[in-house]
C-alpha cells in the first residue's frame, strides 16, 4: 500500500507520461458517493470546460508530480457529481462531518488514501479526530456521514 494524503496532493502539477507536458493541477478529488474511493481528479477548468482524469488513467502519485499515462486521456464530463466537485459543492477537504446519530464532528481537513487503488483509508477532522474508512457511509453536498 502506498499511502498519500489529499492535502499534500492538492495543487500538485499533473504531467503526461507520453508527451511530458503539464496538463493541469490537482484541483479537486471526485470521491464515490459511498466515500470509499477516489474515482477521478478534477485537474483543470471550473465549470463547463472542467477536465477530469480517471483514476485508471493515472500512472503514479509522486512526491512532486501526479503522472497521467496519456495526455489525451483527461476529458470533460457532464456528470452531475463531477460538476459538483469542480464547483466545490462536494469537496471532501472542507466537508462537514456528521455521525449517523445526528451529531457534528467539525469539518474534514485531510484524508489519506491508497495510491495503488484510490481507496480512502481515513479522514481527519478539524477536531483532530481520525475516522477510519470502515465507518464512512457517504459524502454529499451537505456532509460526510459516518457511523457513530
Amino acid at each position: 500500500m502506498s499511502m498519500h494524503t489529499m492535502k499534500a496532493m492538492e495543487g500538485q502539477s499533473v504531467v503526461a507520461v507520453d508527451t511530458a507536458e503539464k496538463i493541469g493541477k490537482v484541483k479537486h478529488f471526485v470521491v464515490s458517493s459511498d466515500a470509499s474511493r477516489i474515482e477521478r481528479l478534477h485537474i483543470d477548468g471550473r465549470t463547463s470546460n472542467s477536465l477530469f482524469a480517471e483514476w485508471s488513467d493515472l500512472e503514479s502519485f509522486g512526491k512532486d508530480r501526479v503522472m497521467v499515462r496519456v495526455a489525451s486521456a483527461p476529458a470533460e464530463s457532464d456528470d452531475e457529481r463531477d460538476i459538483d466537485a469542480a464547483r466545490g459543492r462536494i469537496d471532501l477537504l472542507s466537508s462537514r462531518l456528521l455521525d449517523s446519530a445526528g451529531f457534528e464532528h467539525g469539518t474534514a481537513t485531510d484524508a489519506s488514501f491508497d495510491a495503488d487503488d484510490g481507496r480512502i483509508v481515513s479522514v481527519t477532522s478539524s477536531d483532530g479526530e481520525v475516522i477510519d474508512a470502515s465507518r464512512l457511509r457517504s459524502i454529499g453536498s451537505y456532509a460526510i456521514v459516518f457511523d457513530a
Binding site: L98, G102, S138, G140, V145
Partner: peptide, 12 residues
C-alpha cells in the same frame, strides 16, 4: 429547523 440528512447520500 434541524436538517434531515440522508445516511446513504450525505444530502440535506
Amino acid at each position: 429547523k434541524l436538517p434531515v440528512v440522508t445516511v446513504t447520500g450525505g444530502e440535506d
